[in-house]
Simulated assay, not measured.
Amino acid sequence: MEWWRWAAAAGATVLILLLLALRFDTLKDRRGGSAGTAARRLAPWLLLVPVVVLAAFVGPWWLAAVVVALPAVTLLAMAAVD
């Protein structure tokens, strides 16, 4: 397997986990929210991590680029708004 597939999978995984951590923090800080409630509501979204890794490994190069670019652009937009 090419090195860039491993790099794309690792980069996309880190970015997706960062987005999920930010979402967890938002859910936890809501009115009446707790860490347990936030974890239960976020649990289905954790399935996104293996899907992203699989897409980076198996898909064509442009799909790997999209898988990395989408969370990166999302995080940049969130940073720009904040």
Rank of each mutant, 00 (worst) to 15 (best):
W61A: 15
T37M: 05
L18T: 15
A43T: 02
W3N: 09
D82Q: 01
P60V: 02
G36W: 04
V73S: 13
A38V: 06
A10W: 09
D25P: 00
T13E: 05
L54M: 07
A55P: 11
D25S: 03
V68W: 05
L63I: 13
F57S: 08
G32K: 01
S34N: 07
A39P: 05
A80T: 00
L42K: 05
G11S: 01
G33K: 05
L76T: 08
V81Q: 14
D82M: 07
P71C: 04
G32C: 10
P44S: 15
G36P: 01
K28R: 13
V14T: 15
W3H: 03
A56Y: 10
A55G: 10
V53F: 11
R5F: 05
I16R: 15
G36T: 11
L27S: 09
T13C: 11
L70D: 13
T37A: 07
A10I: 14
L76V: 03
V14Q: 13
V81Y: 11
L48I: 13
L27V: 11
T37I: 05
L46G: 04
K28Y: 15
V58Y: 04
D29R: 14
P60D: 10
W3M: 07
E2T: 02
L63D: 06
L22M: 12
V52I: 08
A35V: 02
A72T: 15
A72C: 14
E2I: 09
W45D: 08
T74K: 04
L54Q: 03
A38C: 02
P50Y: 02
W3Q: 02
A7L: 01
W4C: 03
M1S: 04
V58I: 14
L42Y: 10
W61C: 06
P50R: 00
V51C: 00
L48E: 09
R5D: 09
A79T: 06
L48P: 08
A21V: 04
F24D: 15
W3Y: 02
T74E: 13
I16K: 04
L27E: 06
R41T: 08
W62K: 13
V14L: 15
R30N: 01
V49Y: 03
A9L: 05
M1I: 12
L18F: 13
A43W: 11
A55D: 05
W62H: 08
R23S: 14
A72E: 12
D82P: 06
L20A: 15
V66L: 14
V51S: 11
A12V: 01
S34H: 10
M78D: 06
R23F: 02
G36F: 12
A35K: 10
A80L: 06
V14G: 14
L19S: 15
D29S: 01
P71N: 04
L47R: 06
G59M: 13
R40C: 05
A72V: 14
A56K: 03
T74D: 07
V66P: 08
A72H: 12
V81C: 00
V67C: 11
L42C: 08
